[in-house]
Simulated assay, not measured.
Amino acid sequence: MPGIVAAIGQGDAPPTFISSGRISDDADARPAGPDSLWRIYSMTKPVTAMAAMMLVEEGRLELDQPISDFIPAFGNMRVLEAPDHSLASRPAKQAITVRHLLTHTSGLSYQFLGPKTLRQEYDRLGLLGGRADAAGRERQPSTLEGFADRVATLPLLAEPGTQWNYSVGIDILGRVIEVASGMPFDRFVQMRILDPLGMKSTYWTIPASAAGRLATNYAWVEGRRVPVDPGASSDWLRPNGVTYGGSGLVSSARDYDRFLQMLAGHGCVDGVRLLDRETVTLALSNLLPPGVQRIGEGTPDTTAAEGFGAGGWVYLTDVPQGVRAGTYGWFGAAGTIAFIDPETNVRVTVMVNYFPATKWPVHSDIVRTIYANSNQISGQHQIK
Rank of each mutant, 00 (worst) to 15 (best):
Q65I: 03
D186G: 01
L101Y: 07
L154N: 03
L80I: 03
L173P: 05
L80C: 04
R131Q: 05
S89T: 14
P83V: 13
E178V: 09
Q94N: 15
G169Y: 02
G126K: 08
L128C: 07
S106R: 02
F147I: 10
D84T: 10
L157V: 13
S181P: 02
L125T: 01
T153S: 14
V179E: 05
V176Q: 13
N165Y: 06
Y166S: 11
L154H: 03
D84W: 12
V168L: 09
D133W: 05
L156Q: 11
S109V: 03
A158F: 14
Q65F: 02
R150K: 15
A152M: 07
S142A: 14
D195W: 00
A134R: 13
Y166T: 10
P72F: 03
A92C: 10
T97I: 00
D149S: 13
A135G: 02
F74Q: 12
K116M: 09
H104M: 02
L118S: 03
A152I: 07
T105P: 02
L144W: 04
V189K: 02
L173K: 06
L87A: 11
P72W: 03
D195M: 00
R119K: 14
T103K: 04
T153K: 12
R90W: 02
P72S: 06
R192C: 01
F147Y: 15
P83T: 14
T97H: 01
L87I: 12
G107I: 08
A148V: 08
R131T: 04
L87T: 12
F70S: 13
S86Y: 07
L154I: 02
S167D: 09
P141C: 12
P184N: 11
D69K: 08
T153R: 13
R192K: 14
G146P: 02
V98L: 09
E159N: 09
L108P: 10
G182Y: 11
D195S: 03
M183N: 05
Q140C: 08
M183Y: 01
D186R: 09
F74S: 07
V151L: 14
L127K: 07
D64A: 08
F70P: 01
L156A: 11
Q120S: 12
R99G: 09
H85D: 15
F185I: 03
A135C: 01
I170D: 10
L87N: 10
I71V: 12
P91W: 09
A132K: 04
I71W: 00
I172E: 06
A92Q: 10
G174V: 08
R175Y: 13
T117W: 00
M183A: 14
D171H: 10
N165V: 09
M77H: 13
Q190K: 07
A73K: 03
I96D: 07
D64T: 13
Q94R: 15
I71N: 02
L63Q: 13
L118P: 03
R150C: 01
R150P: 00
D149P: 00
E145V: 05
R119F: 00
E145L: 02
A180W: 02
V168F: 10
